Simulated scan of single mutants.
Amino acid sequence: MRILRCCGFALLGAFLMAAPASADARFVFGGDTYVSGTSAKLSEPSPRDALAAGYSVDITGKVEKDAHAAGFDVDVDAPVGEDLYAAGFAVKVSQPVGGDLTASGFDVDVRQGATIGGNARIGGGTITIDAPISGSLLARGRSLTVNAPIAGDARLAAAKLTFGPDAKIGGELTYSAPEPIEIAPGVIAPDKVHFEKLEPFGEMGFFRQNVRMPHLWPSFLAVFFSFLVTLAFLFVAAAILLAVAPLTVESLRERTIRRPFLSMGLGVLGLGMLIGLIPISAMSVIGIPLIPVILLAITVFWVAGYLLGIYALSWRVADALGELPTTMSARLAVLFIGLVIAAALNFIPFFGWLINLLILFMGLGGLVAWILDALSRRTPAAEVPPQQPADVPRGNTKT
């Protein structure tokens, strides 16, 4: 539940990033402090909770209660009175946390000078813990270094696990690694150590592990079935759009791929403006009932933009390989192949979802350009007063 709560506030932070679309924003609502923008800096004290989101998040003002931070680079350099939830590519915690710490990132660094008053739950690529933890530690990463005392139990999993000279575990230690490692008696008594072999998760590693562990088949099949259902839903939705409005879809495709980088920029701007309506609507009583409508519009806009981006890029690549027929079956075939490839890209760490995100923004930009063009065509031209006809002599009047 704690991890789900962290993810929920990270999503809320993502919403706040877009209000307004291009400038940094800071406001206090209900006693909580909200900060968003490209560079989200919170230097003033927060009397209650603090929520910060942006490309770069820097918290230097004390937070009396919970702090929630999401961004590419997250730096918490101020005391947090209660719990801290942080997610980003690089996460650094340098000051005391009164309650629990939940952090996720490619690089998570809990530095000296920080103290964790409760439990710590950390997931990432490279994890370094140099601060004492008063509760338990649950951590999993590719490389994990513990160099601080842990008062409670520790459950660790890493391909490379290292204990520094200041490491000491007061409770039980359960660790998972490719092979058992030597742990100094000063870290923990040998009778309190429990080893579990960490299975490799390389290419097809997950499938091989599930084959050896039949009791996990239902969960694996459920994930695979969900993948197929999502793929089928996207394909059916796109097929309906192609059948109902083929000319409009082709116009959108050409507009999107003609200037892809401009389309990406317009997509970021359009999605940001739409998401930014959520906190704006929440600030007024009249706007609160509109929030479900805005969320529905965001979902439709998201799905349509993603499908358009995949279709435009797939057709461009396929057309470069050879001339294609413009039949409905050819379009559906190209779209299906593009959807499968885009879905497979998600299994590539980091770069997979980044490529899909760029495809999404490109498609959204095509929709934004089309909407702006449609609005400009509907804007009535300025009325020009009719010219009075010149007096024509009766003798020269032609019938």
Results as ranks from 00 to 15, higher is better:
residue 182 E to G: 02
residue 106 F to T: 04
residue 371 I to N: 05
residue 44 E to K: 14
residue 48 R to Y: 01
residue 73 D to W: 03
residue 268 V to G: 14
residue 154 A to N: 05
residue 390 A to R: 13
residue 249 V to W: 06
residue 294 I to K: 07
residue 358 L to N: 08
residue 194 H to W: 00
residue 304 A to W: 10
residue 365 G to N: 12
residue 66 D to C: 08
residue 324 L to Q: 15
residue 376 S to V: 03
residue 190 P to T: 02
residue 383 E to V: 10
residue 45 P to S: 14
residue 102 T to L: 11
residue 278 I to H: 09
residue 223 V to P: 01
residue 360 L to S: 08
residue 274 L to A: 14
residue 76 V to M: 14
residue 255 R to N: 11
residue 292 P to S: 03
residue 76 V to N: 03
residue 78 A to Y: 10
residue 47 P to R: 06
residue 250 E to Q: 15
residue 78 A to D: 05
residue 105 G to M: 08
residue 6 C to H: 03
residue 179 E to W: 01
residue 172 E to I: 10
residue 357 L to A: 12
residue 249 V to D: 02
residue 74 V to S: 07
residue 150 I to P: 02
residue 36 S to P: 10
residue 263 S to A: 15
residue 83 D to P: 10
residue 330 A to G: 06
residue 23 A to S: 12
residue 148 A to M: 12
residue 255 R to E: 13
residue 350 F to A: 12
residue 317 V to R: 04
residue 104 S to H: 03
residue 194 H to K: 14
residue 269 L to Y: 11
residue 384 V to W: 00
residue 111 R to K: 12
residue 333 A to W: 00
residue 386 P to L: 15
residue 17 M to P: 00
residue 218 P to H: 04
residue 376 S to M: 05
residue 74 V to C: 14
residue 356 N to D: 15
residue 142 R to N: 08
residue 146 V to P: 02
residue 112 Q to N: 15
residue 17 M to L: 09
residue 392 V to G: 03
residue 250 E to K: 14
residue 122 I to L: 14
residue 345 L to A: 13
residue 82 E to F: 06
residue 319 D to M: 09
residue 283 M to H: 08
residue 313 L to K: 12
residue 98 G to D: 01
residue 93 V to C: 09
residue 248 T to W: 09
residue 394 R to L: 15
residue 157 A to W: 00
residue 101 L to N: 00
residue 42 L to Q: 15
residue 113 G to W: 01
residue 333 A to H: 00
residue 144 L to T: 02
residue 384 V to E: 15
residue 45 P to L: 10
residue 301 F to K: 06
residue 165 P to M: 09
residue 126 T to I: 14
residue 232 A to D: 06
residue 102 T to I: 04
residue 160 K to C: 00
residue 95 Q to S: 15
residue 42 L to G: 05
residue 102 T to W: 05
residue 78 A to M: 07
residue 262 L to I: 04
residue 242 L to D: 04
residue 385 P to N: 03
residue 346 N to K: 13
residue 121 R to I: 03
residue 110 V to T: 05
residue 236 V to F: 13
residue 127 I to F: 06
residue 283 M to Y: 06
residue 265 G to T: 01
residue 304 A to H: 12
residue 11 L to R: 08
residue 314 S to A: 15
residue 231 L to S: 07
residue 231 L to A: 13
residue 58 D to Y: 00
residue 306 Y to V: 09
residue 96 P to Y: 04
residue 199 E to Y: 06
residue 318 A to D: 06
residue 262 L to A: 09
residue 201 F to N: 11
residue 174 T to S: 14
residue 235 F to M: 12
residue 389 P to G: 03
residue 289 P to A: 05
residue 1 M to H: 10
residue 363 G to F: 09
residue 68 H to V: 02
residue 284 S to F: 12
